[in-house]
Design a binder for these strands. Structure first.
Lengths: 292, 292
DNA sequence: GATCTGTCTATTGTAGATAAAAGACAGAAC
DNA sequence: GTTCTGTCTTTTATCTACAATAGACAGATC
């Protein structure tokens, strides 16, 4: 197989949802826009819809014939891109399995285990190497440096420098900057989640990422914003992995975020710095606690 | 061709130099150590030496038969790894040629131009993307973000944060830390270069990199040290590219480095910070001046 | 008994091939 | 005249294959 058609399958599934809500589909370019794919893919989807007798398609007319059934959808396993699959497998291995620092990583073995070609694994490792968890020996293997205490400390050190600076920039953003509106929306989400924390605490990870990314973006510095990728991936998998006291930890973090948001709103740099420091410190502690 | 044998050719050339200075070569493992290659490659080199009647090889005896001639060496173009070739071609294109921001980058076209396969170009672009100069549109092309004024400002902002912190760490290193010895050596090189500045100012680039890397390493933070790669590559090509007033600029930078080194030596954080700031500011100005 | 060599195997780096996806262009439909 | 569709070309994502290189092991040499 040369290329997975995951783009097609994922867009197909999303298009099925659109189809469920209307009696006739819009033009090809418009669909492409909405689904974020090219017209080639849109046309492939429409052809398949026609085959499945979901629509009657004649040039500009795309009339819906019937509602989609559950078995019209492609199974979700088939809609993930190869890169996502590799990332998940790899993170599971290094976080859960025997992740001793110094271990060698073998491209071929990884590829076989994941059931994919070496090229994709190799490209993943190259991309992943910027996270500082692995290192390449040219013409030879990769070395796992491990998710160690040092790693966490180095990561949080930089994170704190960057986030403090970003928060300082944030407070001085002009009032008509769209970030303020976004901050307000995020605040609302925080309050909603906190009101129903027992049921919703698992959703915190995503909101956490959204909030901190917004803060980092205020730096207008691509290196600072890009660095947030590293933090996000570490915390993302960290949340999946370490579930002890999750409810309580997340509730506390939500409270801290709210204080932090309020401080940003005050436009007072000193208040913002203080709230930021307080939250970052507890985030750091949480992370460190999870490392043996 | 599956794999270039540049490792072999480069090691062969270096081994020729060793051969010129002795009457018999050491053991295979020792040669591998010295040349930084595996025994397989060492044995390939020895075989070739034998064919070229440079040595008489019988098990542990590797007696030199004649001195190497200039034409025994492989031409230097053949000893560069593919990655180096691609990097150079690419940097030339984006720094010298029409480097309008927003331009699309085409893997296939680049590969054809450089005369290599797409895989290598692709991997290079992935690795290079962490420098923030290009960005990928999945399933589609890369976009050149360009060596712009914003890029330089964002880069120097982070650089200054990192270097100030590293310098602060440096002054508090214990007296027996090897960094102090290295600093002394670097200082000597500075004085030597300054004494013969008219002839040697072109060598500054390399010394500059060595010095700042030493400072960054004091941070003991892999993210800070890794970030220095970006600075190094930008300044490296920048020096090659912008030669106006090179002599004068480099002389000034050398003086600033010496003041900076002295401040580090004083163990006084305030002095170090001041000297660091002063130098970073002029480095920033120099960089900005070269951008249209 | 330590180190070296001969031989063999496993893995990486790179090219080439191919399906999926993007995108360009001309003519058709509004 | 703008937007859409049909068709075609180009480019990317991925697999497979193979030479270069690394690395392992047993027996030879010191």
């Amino acid at each position: 197989m040369a290329k997975q058609n995951t783009v097609f399958k994922d867009a197909y599934n999303r298009c099925l949802k659109l189809l469920a809500e209307t009696s006739s589909l819009p033009s090809e370019p418009e669909l492409g826009q909405v689904l974020g794919v090219s017209r080639t893919t849109v046309r492939a989807i429409l052809s398949r819809f026609e085959e499945a007798q979901l629509i009657a398609w004649d040039k500009r007319k795309k009339n819906v014939l019937r509602q989609p059934r559950p078995d019209d959808y492609f199974p979700t396993e088939e809609t993930d891109s190869l890169a996502e699959i590799i990332e998940r497998s790899f993170m599971r291995r290094i976080l859960a399995g025997g992740a001793e620092p110094g271990m060698q990583i073998n491209e071929l073995e990884l590829a076989r285990e994941i059931g994919t070609g070496t090229t994709s694994v190799r490209e993943f490792l190259i991309r992943f190497s910027r996270f500082g968890l692995i290192e390449k020996r040219p013409n030879s293997h990769w070395i796992l440096k491990g998710f160690t205490r040092e790693f966490a400390l180095e990561l949080t050190e930089v994170r704190e420098m960057f986030e403090l600076r970003s928060a300082a920039r944030f407070v001085s953003l002009p009032d008509d900057h769209p970030a303020w509106e976004e901050l307000r929306e995020i605040e609302t989400l925080h309050r909603e989640m906190l009101a129903d924390i027992d049921n919703r605490y698992r959703e915190f990870s995503e909101l956490d990422e959204q909030f901190h990314l917004l803060v980092h973006k205020a730096s207008s510095n691509r290196f600072i914003v890009d660095f947030y990728d590293i933090i996000a991936i570490v915390f993302h998998y960290h949340y999946q992995w370490n579930k002890t006291n999750a409810r309580q930890r997340n509730a506390r973090a939500l409270e801290e975020h709210l204080a932090y948001i309020e401080a940003l709103r005050s436009h007072d740099p000193a208040k913002a710095e203080q709230a930021c420091r307080r939250h970052l410190q507890s985030a750091r502690e949480t992370l460190l606690q999870s490392i043996p």
